[in-house]
């Protein structure tokens, strides 16, 4: 029923112009008539002061609560594409196998290539294909949690879409973010991408085995990391040669104790 004129006609087929409205009545009579309705409009300001991403954030909080209830530490790995996230995860899962029950959620625009690489290493793995989106969101992660992170899992790795910009804006419910940066990327990336690097309490410098062949200055990179995130915890490693991996695996193990 139209709330203004009380007729039973579908409200979508007649309009109110703010003063009166008219519509044909198909009651067997060919006429229409005007009904006076509320005569004036007024402006009303509604103060909201709420986060635009509150829906994502609310889901992220639900994820956080679920993870806490199930005693799972979740880390959100963010970096440029090609900095070595998947390879580091391969070696990490190998190193923690039978020691720490792990699980992985990995995101890419397309393919399940990363999931395939990570399977068969003792941890359940799920792939999210974002198709057009440049980041993972809390809803995508939330849907997978019960099936992948229950049953005694202590450490969940969320490998975000390779991107130094967008993922930092979307809370997934993780315990904290880990930023990766490889030796083939400029030392000043942290100051160029402060949104990410200032929100990651842990940074991992990857492909350290290549450092001798590059004009790359580790001290300068460490300084940039500390500039945007004072107190950041920095790991320097090569998943390929194994240097620095013991400290990394040791740290991850301690996180779950």
């Amino acid at each position: 029923m139209c709330k203004d004129c009380g007729c039973g006609i579908d409200p979508d087929v007649h309009t109110h112009n703010g003063v009166t409205h008219s519509h044909p009545h198909p009651h067997g009579q060919e006429h229409s008539h005007e009904h006076p309705v509320s005569s004036a409009v007024e402006a009303r300001t509604v103060v909201l002061q709420q986060k635009i991403l509150s829906r994502n954030d609310e889901q992220a909080e639900r994820n956080r609560a679920w993870l806490s209830e199930h005693d799972v530490v979740a880390v959100n790995l963010i970096s440029s594409p090609g900095s070595g996230k998947t390879y580091l995860l391969e070696r990490t899962l190998d190193g923690l196998r039978s020691k720490v029950p792990c699980a992985v959620i990995t995101g890419d625009q397309r393919t399940d290539n990363d999931a395939r690489r990570l399977m068969g290493r003792g941890a359940p793995v799920r792939q999210i294909e974002t198709i057009n989106s440049c980041h993972l969101d809390a809803e995508q992660v939330g849907r997978l949690l019960p099936e992948i992170a229950g049953g005694g899992v202590k450490l969940l790795f969320i490998e975000n879409v390779g991107n130094l910009v967008c993922p930092a804006a979307f809370d997934l419910g993780e315990s904290f973010k880990i930023a990766l940066l490889s030796t083939t990327e400029g030392e000043d990336k942290p100051v160029k991408y402060p949104t990410l690097f200032s929100t990651a309490p842990v940074a991992v410098l990857t492909k350290m085995d290549l450092a001798p062949y590059l004009d790359w200055d580790v001290a300068s990179c460490r300084a940039a990391l500390r500039q945007v995130r004072p107190g950041v915890f920095i790991f320097e490693l090569s998943a390929k040669t194994g240097i620095g991996m013991d400290a990394w695996l040791d740290y991850l193990t301690k996180l779950t104790e």
């Binding site: 509320s38 005569s39 004036a40 409009v41 007024e42 402006a43 009303r44 300001t45 509604v46 103060v47 909201l48 002061q49 709420q50 986060k51 635009i52 991403l53 804006a169 200032s198 500390r226 004072p230 107190g231």
Partner: peptide, 23 residues
Amino acid sequence: KKVELSAGRELNIKSLELEVNER
């Protein structure tokens, strides 16, 4: 060096101005 962000990460809807029927 112990500084923290006090502003700069906001992404909020502050307010809306609506047109409503006078009651």
